Simulated scan of single mutants.
Amino acid sequence: MKIAFDGKRFFNNASGLGNYSRDLVRILATHFPQNQYIILNKEQSERGRKILEIPGVSFKKTSKGNFSRQFKIGKDAQNIDADIFHGLSGELPLKWNNKPIKKIVTVHDLIFMRFPQYYSFFDRKIHFWKFKKAAEQADLIIAISEQTKRDIIKFLKVPESKIRVVYQGCHQSFKEMQSSEFLNSVKEKFGLPKKFILNVGTIEERKNLLNIVKAITRTDIPLVVIGKKTKYFNKVEKFIKKNKLQNQIFFLENVSMEDLAAVYKLAEIFVYPSVFEGFGIPVIEALFSGTSVITSNTSCLPEAGGPDSLYVNPTQPEDLKSKILFLWNNEAERNRRVEKGLKYAQRFSDENIARDLMNVYSEVLSGK
């Protein structure tokens, strides 16, 4: 089987869609080395270079020119006799030739439809057109959660029979044991407190950091935050200064994947009260890291967190505060949930994801 991938996110995105693209190819090539996996893009970058060293994975430079991703990359895949073209970020090329090829697209979320206030009018129209067009062209659609599947049916008017749910995993670093010496060196490197709760993700309104800050106000619980800052950060910072919380909240930047995995392991609790997610990879990262989780009772987050994470109404800081205090003051309860959460996380193992992806590929080629 020869599978061609749209490599834009694979090479260009440091997190999010980039991590999904790189992990997907790595997982497939590791567990099904008999196939060929070709990454199509205008150029390579350092991101993903290690994955290109895996047997069976190769890079193919695509045709030059403006809009080549839209008009040429599909034909490039056909011209190298690929059996399948997999668009990894909600898009498929617009132009194809007459050579046979099956088309699969992964849709991560339709947040721009559920929360249009977070997007400009122009971005909403462009996103909807691209996703709708890709859904129509695709032989099968991969949704990364049951929540995303429901949204594809609702907003893109796609029949359920055309959608398969294949969960995401997380980077290998979160599944590996790290020595106590390394963990201590990371703690010293970033000046972390002895005990803390953790939040990871872009600092934007939808991720709801302000309500975590409100929840720990008038407590002595330190909060460590790792994520790219947006304009929303100014709102959070204003509240922090007004309530004199500067010495209680730590913002980390330039954190490598290995260091990030260590910070997860060092945290007592991972707190993620996002209003809405397509899946919620940080929750999976926490489960694999052996860290207890508090997250929202909305969207796909209960799918990611499983039955032994704690759930809150993300709009109610007092609910969040009570759950944080409950776990913070109860080590035995944290440990119990960690043990069960790690077992639940195995459904997001590389082996399971590789098998589910290969089942989708086999199904689309069989035409059933």
Rank of each mutant, 00 (worst) to 15 (best):
F121M: 13
I126A: 03
F131I: 05
E146N: 14
I142T: 09
H127N: 15
A138P: 04
A134I: 06
D151F: 09
S161L: 08
T106I: 07
K103Q: 01
R164E: 07
F121Y: 15
Q137L: 15
D151M: 13
N98W: 01
I144Q: 06
A143M: 07
V158W: 02
K125Q: 13
Y119E: 07
S120P: 04
F122E: 12
N98F: 05
E160S: 15
F155I: 09
S120G: 15
E136S: 08
W129M: 12
K130F: 10
V158A: 00
I153S: 06
K102I: 13
V105C: 07
P116A: 00
I163T: 02
D123P: 01
I152A: 02
Y118M: 04
S120L: 04
S120Q: 07
V107W: 04
S120C: 08
R124C: 10
I141H: 04
I111N: 07
R150S: 15
T148G: 12
W129Q: 04
D139R: 08
V105H: 04
I163D: 01
H127P: 00
I153R: 13
H108D: 07
S161H: 12
S145A: 06
E160V: 01
F121I: 15
I101D: 00
K162N: 00
I111F: 00
I126T: 06
V107G: 01
I142L: 01
D109C: 14
L156F: 10
V107Q: 05
I152E: 01
S145R: 10
A135S: 15
K103Y: 02
M113A: 11
E146I: 03
R150Q: 15
F121W: 15
F128R: 02
H127F: 14
K99F: 03
D123Y: 12
S120M: 12
W129I: 06
A134L: 11
I144K: 01
L110T: 09
S145M: 05
L140Q: 11
A143S: 13
Q117M: 14
L156M: 10
Q147I: 04
P116R: 06
Y118N: 04
F131M: 10
I163F: 02
K133N: 09
D123M: 03
D123I: 03
K157N: 09
W129P: 08
K162Y: 11
K103H: 09
K162H: 03
K157F: 02
D139L: 13
I111S: 08
I111Y: 03
T106Y: 12
F155K: 10
I101W: 03
H127L: 10
T148D: 04
F112H: 13
M113I: 05
N98K: 15
V105N: 01
L140D: 06
F155A: 08
